[in-house]
Deep mutational scan, measured.
Amino acid sequence: MEVRTIKVFTTVDNINLHTQVVDMSMTYGQQFGPTYLDGADVTKIKPHNSHEGKTFYVLPNDDTLRVEAFEYYHTTDPSFLGRYMSALNHTKKWKYPQVNGLTSIKWADNNCYLATALLTLQQIELKFNPPALQDAYYRARAGEAANFCALILAYCNKTVGELGDVRETMSYLFQHANLDSCKRVLNVVCKTCGQQQTTLKGVEAVMYMGTLSYEQFKKGVQIPCTCGKQATKYLVQQESPFVMMSAPPAQYELKHGTFTCASEYTGNYQCGHYKHITSKETLYCIDGALLTKSSEYKGPITDVFYKENSYTTTIK
């Protein structure tokens, strides 16, 4: 009895394709271990004539594949690729409408935090270190965002349907971005203890939790000093293409032309909904596939993004 075979390709990165001759009487799992086709788990399936010449994702289970996976995804987590594939199996079914010149995501599976993050990423200057993220990001900007969303979920250790947080998501993504040249110098002034300067680099240099107003941050924000008295913390120097200011959701007025974009969060910790506000020729609110415009805006804002380049204080 002759062994019926077909020729397929296996890959971990969709760049390096490895030619395989597979036995049609055995499952993919018996031949390769966990195997995925377009995100779908085909591990328990036997090869079919229609699979001839198709590319299958496999887990990096030998040295060659491990090197290829690390170079593309910059992670050695053995569960990463499987999590990416199972997320992709959902995100490829989502709709990605162009809204006001940006790629958004039609609401499904509690994905409003991903839509808000995706919209924000198209408006701030950011370059990702893992080629996987950078490639998928370019495709997302062009309207094909399924891979990018699935990668975000995998890097953030999230599953489809789980509630997510924009600030946490951005923080994970910033860790995989090139923020080497970003720098922030802060000064804390206390009447009792004097003053202390701190220099922050990388992710810490672009994120701040405690106030939404970048102007206020430049002037000074009140913080408790270690001595128990009130101290003032203010920005001395900022070198970065953008800054992200966050605070627990509270009524906040966004003035046209003073910011790049913002995240609105309605609801409580267990259950809520994100919308995205962007400042173009007027203010726009993007909620999944829905767009509304207004000249002014007041609502429960939790993150505001500002364009920056270089700032030095005039406070002496």
Rank of each mutant, 00 (worst) to 15 (best):
C271S: 15
R141P: 05
A177P: 04
L133G: 04
T312P: 11
L151Y: 05
L254F: 08
P249A: 09
N61Y: 14
S246T: 04
E144Y: 09
G143V: 04
K233F: 06
K7L: 09
I223P: 04
L126E: 01
T27P: 13
Y84Q: 01
E144L: 03
P224R: 14
Q237W: 07
H74L: 06
Y214N: 00
L102P: 02
L290G: 09
G272A: 02
E296A: 13
S240E: 02
T76D: 09
F80L: 02
S171I: 08
T103S: 01
E253I: 12
Y269W: 15
K46C: 11
P130S: 04
K293G: 05
D165H: 07
V188L: 07
G228V: 01
P130N: 03
V8F: 04
S294I: 15
K92D: 05
G220D: 04
I223R: 03
T64D: 15
S181E: 12
P97D: 13
G143Y: 04
F217K: 04
T169L: 07
P78Y: 05
E162M: 02
K158M: 03
S310Y: 11
F9G: 07
Y73T: 03
M24P: 14
Y214C: 00
V221S: 03
A247G: 10
D180K: 14
N14C: 08
K54W: 11
F56A: 06
G33D: 00
E253A: 13
A289E: 15
V206L: 02
K316Q: 15
Y73W: 03
M207G: 02
P78L: 12
N110V: 04
L88A: 07
N147L: 06
S294D: 09
Y113L: 11
C182F: 08
N309A: 15
Y96A: 02
E215T: 10
L81V: 14
T103R: 05
D23M: 11
Q175T: 09
G53I: 09
Y57E: 09
I6N: 06
A150H: 04
C271W: 15
V8M: 14
D165L: 05
H176G: 02
Q216C: 08
N16H: 10
K229D: 15
T192A: 14
G164Q: 06
I223C: 15
D303N: 10
K46L: 14
A136M: 05
H256A: 12
E162I: 06
H90L: 09
Q216L: 08
Q230Y: 13
V189A: 11
S240R: 03
N61W: 08
Q175K: 14
L291G: 12
G210Y: 00
K95Y: 15
K92R: 11
D180H: 10
Y265G: 00
E71G: 07
H256G: 08
P131L: 05
V304T: 02
V160D: 02
Q270S: 15
V67D: 14
H51Q: 08
Y84S: 05
V203Y: 15
Y138R: 14
V188P: 01
S263V: 13
Y138T: 13
R4F: 07
T292W: 06
P97K: 10
L118I: 08
C112N: 03
P47G: 08
S171H: 15
H273Y: 00
L121G: 02
E168K: 15
E308R: 05
R139T: 10
S263A: 09
A115T: 11
K218C: 03
C193S: 04
F148V: 03
K44L: 13
L153A: 08
L121V: 09
T55G: 05
M85F: 00
C112L: 07
Y269T: 15
K255T: 09
K316G: 15
Q216Y: 03
T226I: 12
K46Y: 12
K158I: 10
T91H: 05
Y252T: 07
C190Q: 09
I152R: 00
K280H: 08
H273G: 07
V3P: 14
S181K: 10
K158H: 08
L118G: 05
A154T: 11
S240F: 02
I286P: 00
N61I: 08
A205E: 04
T211R: 00
M245D: 03
L118A: 06
A289T: 09
Q230C: 01
G29D: 06
C271L: 13
Y57Q: 07
K7W: 09
K218Y: 04
Y96I: 03
G164T: 00
T169E: 04
R184H: 00
T282F: 04
V188R: 06
K183H: 09
P60G: 05
A154F: 03
L17G: 07
E68V: 03
F217H: 03
S240V: 03
V166T: 00
T64A: 12
F259W: 03
H90F: 11
R184D: 00
L37D: 14
W94V: 08
G202C: 04
T43D: 11
C271N: 12
M26S: 15
Y265P: 00
W94M: 09
Q270H: 15
T75C: 09
Q20G: 09
F70Y: 15
I315S: 15
H48C: 11
T282C: 15
D41G: 06
H18V: 07
G210C: 00
E215G: 06
M24C: 10
G257P: 02
D38P: 05
H90T: 11
L114C: 04
H176E: 06
H74R: 11
Y36H: 05
Q237F: 13
D287H: 02
D77S: 07
T302A: 12
D165M: 15
K307C: 08
Y84T: 09
W107E: 04
T266M: 09
H273T: 05
V189W: 07
I124N: 04
L65I: 07
D38L: 09
R141Q: 11
T5C: 13
S263D: 11
N268L: 13
R83C: 03
T192C: 05
D109I: 01
P224T: 13
S295I: 07
V67S: 14
G82E: 15
F242T: 01
L173V: 09
T292M: 07
A108S: 07
I124L: 14
D165Y: 11
S246Q: 07
T169G: 09
T260F: 00
Y269Q: 15
D62V: 07
T75V: 09
I277C: 04
Y113F: 02
Y28K: 08
G101N: 01
T103K: 05
L17T: 14
E239T: 09
L212R: 02
T64E: 14
L81P: 06
L291E: 05
F148N: 01
K54C: 14
T192R: 12
T302E: 08
P34F: 12
S25K: 07
K255D: 08
K233N: 05
T55W: 07
K46M: 00
A40P: 05
Q251I: 12
E281I: 10
T211V: 03
C149Q: 08
M207T: 13
T159H: 12
F32Q: 13
D287C: 01
A40M: 14
Q175E: 00
A140D: 09
Q122N: 06
V99F: 14
E144C: 06
M209E: 13
Y73C: 01
V160K: 02
L235E: 03
K158R: 07
T64F: 09
N187S: 10
C190A: 05
H74E: 08
L163K: 12
G101M: 09
N187R: 13
L151F: 06
Q31I: 10
D38K: 09
V206M: 01
G33K: 07
E296H: 14
G143E: 03
N157H: 09
P249K: 02
E168Y: 15
G194I: 07
